[in-house]
Amino acid sequence: MNQPQAFTYTPPRDDVHTEPGAIRFVIVALAVLFLLIFVVLPLVVVFASAFSKGVMAYVAALGEPEALSAIRLTLLVAAISVSLNLVSGVIAAWAIAKFDFAGKTFLITLIDLPFSVSPVISGLVFVLLFGAQGFFGPWLQAHDIRILFALPGIALATIFVTFPFVARALIPLMQEQGTQEEEAAISLGASGLQTFFRVTLPNIKWGLLYGVLLCNARAMGEFGAVSVVSGHIRGETNTMPLLVEILYNEYQFVASFAIASLLAMLALITLVAKTVLERRLDEGQVVSDD
């Protein structure tokens, strides 16, 4: 039998898939230059300034009691807000991915909102709620409960700001996986919780980690919202980003950039972990269990 000529495979011409070398070069150069100037240089400045007076000054700056207390507070706030958002993010993603209902876009938008709303507004809403002049202020004062200008306020503002991350990382993943596996588990007699821990959770674990990672990075770095609700009590309600600003304003540039470099380091670690996770995620899509 004669194979019709039209169906024989012709190797693609090179210019079909790509551009001429010169254009390629220009595009890569533009991309690299843009990233270098806008992303790499600011990062380099942070570290260069932090070490401008030598390693000793850097270490000394981080050993200050105020720095330690800021680090402690930041870790604590991040731990609280990440764990709460972990739980709520999973639940929210579950509801959105596995059920269909009217106003879904509205709900997703609500979840996304803290992400795009100005951090200043995020802080402001808590002042309006819990401030002495706010809706719950008088009641809180009467019962001597302190929310604003103390740990709860800082944690609340951070939770608000970092709310979308876990949910957002999980929704596409859960949508893709559908509900068949869970349905199968339930029909085989598993309870809801069993289904969640044995079936759902293993499927989403990498996505979950990914969301937690981003959530954590943002929680530790939040500035605007926390600045409004912190009260700036030295050694007590100053988080690391706030301390960066304070030290900067006290002419302690090395100390300021030292704290900033810690935060930058955190960002870098987050990125490395994220890159690793993304690779896992990609693999996970091919082989659903690993």
Binding site: V127, A132, Q133, R146, L148, F149, I233
Partner: peptide, 8 residues
């Protein structure tokens, strides 16, 4: 402002 809002 912070004191008015309840900074102790």
């Amino acid at each position: 402002r912070a004191v008015i809002d309840g900074l102790q």
